[in-house]
Design a protein around this nucleic acid. Sequence first.
DNA 1: ATGTAGACTGCAGTCGACT
DNA 2: TAGTCGACTGCAGTCTACA
Lengths: 72, 72
Amino acid sequence: MNKTDLTIKFGNRMRELRKAKGLSQEDFADSCEFDRTYISGIERGTRNPTLKALEILANALDVSIESLFKGL
Amino acid sequence: MNKTDLTIKFGNRMRELRKAKGLSQEDFADSCEFDRTYISGIERGTRNPTLKALEILANALDVSIESLFKGL
DNA sequence: ATGTAGACTGCAGTCGACT
DNA sequence: TAGTCGACTGCAGTCTACA
């Protein structure tokens, strides 16, 4: 828990980008080598990923870290 | 420890931005309400800050999170 | 396919002290 | 002023299981 404005916006952005790639949370989690429940938590804004995690997520989404934050 | 390419580049970027504001690590740490030794670790690439921490750091540097990652 | 809960290990972030 | 160390608490990230 302990959502913030940022974690929620970031989660929404992640979800958009994942769906744009046509992936389920499970498939996306596999491609990141993250746990599925962790991806779920990030998208719902209940998790607070680290810099290294952001890098992995951005890579799996084929975007730069910078563009992960565009419009946030 | 356990530096990565990203944590080092990010640390260098942070240091540039801090110096551009003419702040010591200590003054900057105070303005973020982070510990001075933590800022030191981030700048040297030995720390792995979270999304919420990045937001606080970006705010204290008067830049967007997005621009924190420009050119990384 | 997704959300959530509970339990676990390692590390994020704090603090005091010394160089 | 900045780096580093050691010790601490809380949470990042994993995993199993159920709705």
